[in-house]
């Protein structure tokens, strides 16, 4: 049987996922924090782990370069791909939300400006509410945008709300709950059903 290829990004999510794998009996002795290896195999040589950038995980899985991917729901929402989304790993729980100054009224005559790292999610959310907006794509320090008057509100990940609070912002609307999901390539699921279902049920047993 060939390897099951799993794509994920290095970092907190990967560390947590690896402890789940270990509990499920899949060990990566080769792996340690300082390792720069981008490809590692488990001790039984059944699973191959590849480390890619988080935003690329859905692409790797959709194209079949990886059978399985572990990635945040925010990334999947921003770049929707044609894959199966079979499991919530419950890692990195947070929220995608609209945030801004409390009690501020927006005149309906002008276009609402929204700064976000997630222009796709932002557009889809406001479209569904029938509100026309101008989106400003930023790559970090999103909270700064309303402070300096570049945007009216922001759409961002909110974990504890601490950053928002320190900058005088509050959550105005919640868009979606976010956590790490397990996604699966559709062709892999069809051609290697048993192997993948087994992997998922092992993992599920650990989560419960």
């Amino acid at each position: 049987m060939t390897h099951l290829t799993i794509a994920m990004a290095k970092g907190r999510t990967a560390d947590k996922a690896l402890t789940f794998f270990e509990k499920a009996g899949i060990r990566f002795s080769d792996f340690h924090d300082k390792s720069r290896k981008l490809v590692i195999y488990d001790d039984e040589n059944k699973v191959k782990l590849i480390f890619v950038k988080a935003v690329d995980v859905p692409t790797y899985v959709e194209k079949g370069a990886a059978d399985i991917g572990i990635v945040g729901k925010d990334t999947i929402m921003e770049d929707p791909v044609d894959v199966y989304e079979l499991l919530d790993l419950g890692i990195g729980k947070c929220q995608l939300a609209v945030a801004g100054f409390p009690d501020k009224q927006f005149p309906s005559s002008t276009l609402l400006t929204v700064a976000s790292k997630y222009p796709g999610v932002t557009k889809a959310y406001f479209d569904s509410k029938g509100i026309r907006i101008e989106t400003i794509k930023l790559n970090g320090s999103i909270e700064l945008a309303p402070l300096i008057g570049m945007s009216d509100v922001i759409v961002d990940i909110v974990e504890s709300g601490k950053t928002l609070k320190e900058n005088g912002l509050v959550v105005l609307e919640e868009i979606a709950d976010v956590s790490a999901r397990l996604i699966v390539n559709k062709a892999s699921y069809a051609t290697r059903t048993n192997q993948i279902q087994q992997f998922i049920s092992d993992l599920k047993a650990v989560l419960e």
Binding site: E62, K63, G64, A65, D82, K186, A187, S188, A190, T191
Partner: peptide, 9 residues
Amino acid sequence: GYVEKFGKP
């Protein structure tokens, strides 16, 4: 229909 190592039907 799917075949091995190809991500799309």
